[in-house]
Simulated assay, not measured.
Amino acid sequence: MDKDKKIGKSEVLIIIPAYNESGNIVRVVDEIRNKYSEYDYIVVNDGSLDQTRKVCHANHIHILDLPVNVGLTGAVRAGMRYANYHDYKYAIQLDGDGQHKPEYIKTMLKAMIELNADIIIGSRFKTQRKPITARMIGSQLITYAIFITTRGKYIGDVTSGMRLFNRKMIKRFGYQLNYRPEPDTLAYLINSGIKIEEVQVDMRERVEGESYLDVINSFKYMTHVLINILITQWFRNR
């Protein structure tokens, strides 16, 4: 796209990675268009195998259409490059399943400015306790691993995909391979001097579709993340 064809005049771009979200994406985007039109948005269709692309075009949704599935990291990277190209000051990632509420963007922006933070996480557990479930126990283990390896930085909601990034982080997540939207990257970033803070938010339950993180995949995911936090991060370029 040409630089003069930027969607709007907002300083904020909402990046919505979407993989097989045909049942959710219209509702997600309509909420933004109808209630939060002060923000720009882009749906990054990550090579969906369902009707996500057709649904987006039929409903005149702004879409960055990736021809193949590149995974969350690749989809977010594409969105960040779009944000950088169009000179957005802030970018926020909202999931395409509708769990994240745009009403909290204003609060997160305020916190970023007041705290001079590079990343603000929309956290379910900033002021509330995690429920005792197998998945939340895994999340807590990751929280403790980050706490230990960063000498005391507590991140309560390590798996939250609702994250606000400043201009510096837009460039880094867009163009540096060591920057991935995963929990292990939080430890790496904090140890690299990046300031990360949390803001309490409320999230919805997924309406349609299913998360790929079933019991087996959740265990594999947690193990992989813990290894990256405890060992691999020390070998990544800073």
Rank of each mutant, 00 (worst) to 15 (best):
M1K: 10
M1P: 04
D4T: 14
K5Q: 08
E11T: 15
I14W: 01
I16M: 12
I16H: 06
Y19W: 15
Y19L: 12
N20Y: 05
E21K: 15
S22Q: 14
N24T: 02
V26C: 05
R27I: 00
R27F: 00
R27L: 00
V29T: 10
D30V: 03
N34I: 01
N34P: 00
Y36M: 04
S37I: 05
Y39C: 10
D40W: 06
Y41G: 12
V43M: 03
N45D: 15
N45H: 04
D46E: 07
S48F: 02
D50N: 08
Q51C: 09
Q51I: 01
R53C: 11
K54R: 07
C56W: 03
H60S: 13
I61C: 10
I63V: 15
L66I: 10
L66T: 06
P67G: 09
N69M: 07
L72K: 10
T73F: 02
R81L: 01
R81T: 01
H86C: 03
H86S: 11
D87L: 08
K89E: 08
K89T: 14
I92H: 06
I92M: 05
L94I: 14
G98V: 02
G98D: 05
Q99L: 05
Q99S: 14
H100V: 02
K101A: 01
P102E: 09
E103T: 05
Y104F: 14
I105G: 12
K106P: 00
T107E: 13
M108Y: 07
M108D: 09
M112K: 13
M112S: 13
I113H: 03
N116H: 13
D118V: 06
I120Y: 04
I121G: 05
K126N: 03
Q128V: 09
Q128R: 06
K130V: 00
P131Y: 07
T133H: 07
R135W: 11
G138H: 08
S139M: 13
Q140Y: 15
L141Q: 08
L141H: 03
I142V: 15
A145M: 07
I148F: 15
T149K: 15
T150F: 00
G152N: 04
T159D: 14
M162E: 01
L164Y: 07
F165P: 01
N166I: 03
R167Q: 08
M169L: 10
M169C: 08
M169Q: 14
M169D: 03
I170P: 05
I170V: 14
R172F: 02
F173M: 02
Y175S: 11
Q176Y: 06
Q176G: 06
Y179K: 09
P181T: 06
E182R: 15
D184N: 15
D184Y: 15
T185C: 12
A187V: 01
Y188E: 14
S192F: 00
G193E: 00
K195C: 01
E198L: 02
E198I: 03
Q200L: 00
V201W: 02
D202Y: 10
D202M: 11
E205Y: 14
R206C: 03
G209M: 06
E210Y: 12
D214R: 06
V215Y: 09
I216K: 15
I216N: 15
I216C: 05
N217C: 02
F219W: 09
Y221H: 09
M222G: 04
T223W: 08
N228S: 13
L230T: 12
L230M: 14
T232D: 13
Q233G: 09
R236V: 02
R236P: 01
R236D: 02
R238L: 00
